[in-house]
Measured scan of single mutants.
Amino acid sequence: MQRVNMIMAESPGLITICLLGYLLSAECTVFLDHENANKILNRPKRYNSGKLEEFVQGNLERECMEEKCSFEEAREVFENTERTTEFWKQYVDGDQCESNPCLNGGSCKDDINSYECWCPFGFEGKNCELDVTCNIKNGRCEQFCKNSADNKVVCSCTEGYRLAENQKSCEPAVPFPCGRVSVSQTSKLTRAETVFPDVDYVNSTEAETILDNITQSTQSFNDFTRVVGGEDAKPGQFPWQVVLNGKVDAFCGGSIVNEKWIVTAAHCVETGVKITVVAGEHNIEETEHTEQKRNVIRIIPHHNYNAAINKYNHDIALLELDEPLVLNSYVTPICIADKEYTNIFLKFGSGYVSGWGRVFHKGRSALVLQYLRVPLVDRATCLRSTKFTIYNNMFCAGFHEGGRDSCQGDSGGPHVTEVEGTSFLTGIISWGEECAMKGKYGIYTKVSRYVNWIKEKTKLT
């Protein structure tokens, strides 16, 4: 034993070699072989497995989906700052455009905790909710729209109204504003409101030439003092309507412009014939205590009207009353817009006519005020429907199939267009061939041609 100890002390290297040989010859039971080890760690190889990531292109799944990435790591994937920024906006807080917040056709661009709407022409605001041009839906104005110097929408209202708090709607500024039905039992019968379409306001006024200088022999019209197929109006439903009495009662109609003036057809009036105007009328054979009678003290036909040349060209006249009318729910003026808007309103496509005229061709006159909704007829169809001249200051309205029309005794009465609950004068009943005849239409004086003249002559002093 002493000898062994001496050998170990003198030859430590020998001992180490012996131990190493023993270990190498022993069977290893701690580690699995290569094949079995792979069965336990069965993990798919990654895209760049075996390579240094710093030297390969980034992978979106590896960089940002398996674990949260930084902007720089995302930049490695896209290799483009702009594309990385677009991805980053949604990656950080989701897609803010998912709810489609942009209105009126706006395009949404996502941002971090926010979004941006790219608005089409005519709109602005956070969600493109603000109209900035009158060309689109009248700028959301209830009545009139004008573009300011910086191309912003400025709404306005006709006389007797003021802008509401929203700067879009119009509200009454006087007790009985024009064009409004205020009798409670008839307010439910107000005709369907007309909503502004998209309009090209630059070209809204037709490029028409008034044929002022045409000389033409007097034409022989049949029954051209021209509501057939209409309905009984309720008291106060058309408070701007008046009836004219002269040699015979209810020979023509008219509309209240203001307390002192009536507008009617020029062919209705004769110099030297006494005319009485009755406002607030409903049943011409009954006294309903809503009527107001006034005498006409002055007749002003349009300066281009000449019955000797043509009885229905420039067929418009103004009547001055001896005493002002007292405005109330049964006696209310009709609204008159400017030339541009009167023309736009007419193009809405349908209007209402009213009167006490004959209820059928050569038949009896109506006792109760009649009204009828009539569609506008395109000019080409209008011209083809008659052998008589249709001037540019006239328009056609009615039904091709016949059966409904204005008729004798309705002449001078109103053709009105309702705009968001307020009625505007767009025409004056003038003439036609018979009444409600198939293929024939009622012919009306186009008020847009005469609004400046009306307003100039009827100013209240």
Rank of each mutant, 00 (worst) to 15 (best):
T290H: 10
G253S: 08
E270D: 06
F238W: 07
S148N: 10
G230N: 09
R140M: 08
V277W: 01
G236H: 08
T16M: 15
G409V: 05
V374H: 02
K45Q: 12
N258W: 01
R226D: 10
V377E: 02
R226E: 12
L325S: 00
T422K: 07
E434V: 11
N135V: 13
N213T: 06
T190L: 07
F238D: 01
T332G: 04
G280V: 01
E286P: 06
I443S: 03
P375I: 12
I297Q: 05
I262T: 01
A192T: 11
K455V: 06
I136M: 15
H303P: 10
N203M: 07
C119D: 02
M8S: 13
D223L: 11
I15V: 07
L23N: 01
E10P: 14
A436N: 14
S70C: 05
Y201A: 09
L163Q: 03
P414Y: 07
V419G: 00
L130K: 12
S448A: 14
K362V: 06
D223H: 09
L319Q: 00
E193F: 10
V56L: 06
P333S: 05
I284Y: 08
N113P: 06
H34Q: 11
E270F: 03
K45D: 08
Y341N: 15
N138E: 07
N104K: 04
Q408W: 15
L60P: 15
S49T: 14
V195D: 12
A317Q: 00
P175Q: 07
H289K: 12
K347Q: 13
V368R: 12
R364T: 12
N258I: 00
T332S: 14
R162K: 08
V202E: 13
R62M: 11
V202D: 08
D150Y: 07
M6V: 10
S114L: 10
K455L: 09
I210A: 11
N135G: 15
C157P: 00
F360L: 14
L163K: 04
R358A: 14
Y305L: 02
T194Q: 11
R62F: 07
T386M: 15
R449I: 05
N393Q: 05
F31G: 13
A149P: 09
N80M: 04
N452D: 15
Q219V: 09
I454K: 01
S220M: 06
P333T: 03
P375Y: 13
S70Q: 15
C141N: 00
Y341P: 04
R180Y: 05
R62E: 07
H314G: 04
R449V: 14
I454L: 08
H415C: 02
N313V: 09
A265L: 02
E67R: 15
C141K: 01
L32D: 15
I429N: 13
L211C: 08
N328Y: 00
N328M: 01
T81M: 07
F71R: 14
I7W: 13
N258A: 04
E259T: 06
T81H: 12
L60D: 12
R46K: 11
Y22W: 13
E35D: 15
N313K: 11
V202K: 11
G413L: 07
T461S: 15
T458P: 00
R162E: 10
N310T: 08
Q216I: 06
V242R: 00
G363T: 14
K387R: 12
G230V: 13
S329D: 15
C128V: 02
E72C: 03
A192E: 11
F55D: 09
G236Y: 04
N283D: 10
T381I: 14
L327M: 11
Y47L: 11
F78T: 03
Y391G: 15
L346D: 02
A164I: 05
I299C: 04
A149Y: 13
N452F: 05
F78Y: 15
K109R: 12
Y352S: 10
I17S: 01
L376N: 05
N258G: 03
N100A: 07
E124Q: 12
Q96A: 14
K459C: 14
K459V: 13
V30M: 14
S148A: 11
R62P: 12
S70K: 10
K137V: 12
L163D: 00
A250C: 06
N166G: 04
V153N: 11
Q57M: 08
T158E: 05
V174S: 08
V227W: 14
N59A: 11
V359C: 07
K387Y: 06
Y22K: 01
S156Y: 10
I112A: 15
L367W: 14
V374A: 11
G363P: 13
F221Y: 10
T194A: 10
L425M: 04
T16D: 02
A397W: 01
V4A: 11
C268M: 01
K39D: 15
K260F: 07
N295V: 03
L130C: 07
C435F: 03
K446N: 09
T342R: 01
L60M: 10
K39F: 07
V368I: 15
N343P: 02
I214Y: 13
V278Y: 04
S156A: 11
F221D: 13
E285F: 09
D200E: 10
T84Q: 08
D249W: 00
E53Q: 06
M437T: 12
A250I: 05
I299G: 04
D378R: 07
E116W: 12
R191G: 13
I284L: 11
A9E: 05
G442K: 06
G421L: 04
N306D: 11
H415W: 03
N295M: 03
C134H: 03
D212V: 10
A9W: 15
T85L: 09
G13E: 04
K247G: 03
T16A: 14
S107K: 13
P324V: 04
P239S: 02
I454N: 01
V257K: 01
I300W: 04
C268F: 01
T218F: 13
Y305G: 02
G427W: 00
I299T: 13
G106P: 02
A436K: 14
R358T: 14
Y22P: 02
C268V: 01
Y47H: 15
H415T: 00
T271F: 07
N5C: 12
N343I: 03
K274E: 02
Q216G: 06
E73A: 06
V374P: 05
G421C: 02
S169R: 09
T271G: 03
R46D: 07
F360W: 12
N343H: 09
N59C: 06
V359M: 15
L372G: 12
A317W: 00
H289A: 07
S255E: 02
G21S: 11
F360T: 15
I336N: 01
G105T: 04
K274Y: 02
F31D: 07
V202C: 05
T190H: 13
C382H: 02
L130F: 09
K387G: 08
N306H: 10
G439P: 06
F224L: 12
T461W: 07
R384G: 14
D198S: 09
C97Y: 01
T225L: 11
L130N: 12
I336V: 13
E67F: 04
V199P: 12
G355E: 04
K311A: 09
L383E: 10
E35L: 05
N310W: 04
D232M: 09
S329M: 09
R298M: 03
C435H: 04
P172A: 09
E208V: 09
F196R: 09
V451A: 15
T215W: 05
N452Q: 11
G253W: 10
A266N: 02
I214S: 13
G179R: 01
D232H: 13
S148K: 10
D232R: 13
A308L: 12
Q167R: 05
D405N: 15
D198K: 09
V331C: 05
L130Y: 10
N127K: 14
T271S: 09
K152I: 11
H282W: 12
E27Q: 14
K126H: 10
A207P: 11
V174Y: 05
V326T: 07
I256F: 01
L41S: 12
N138Y: 07
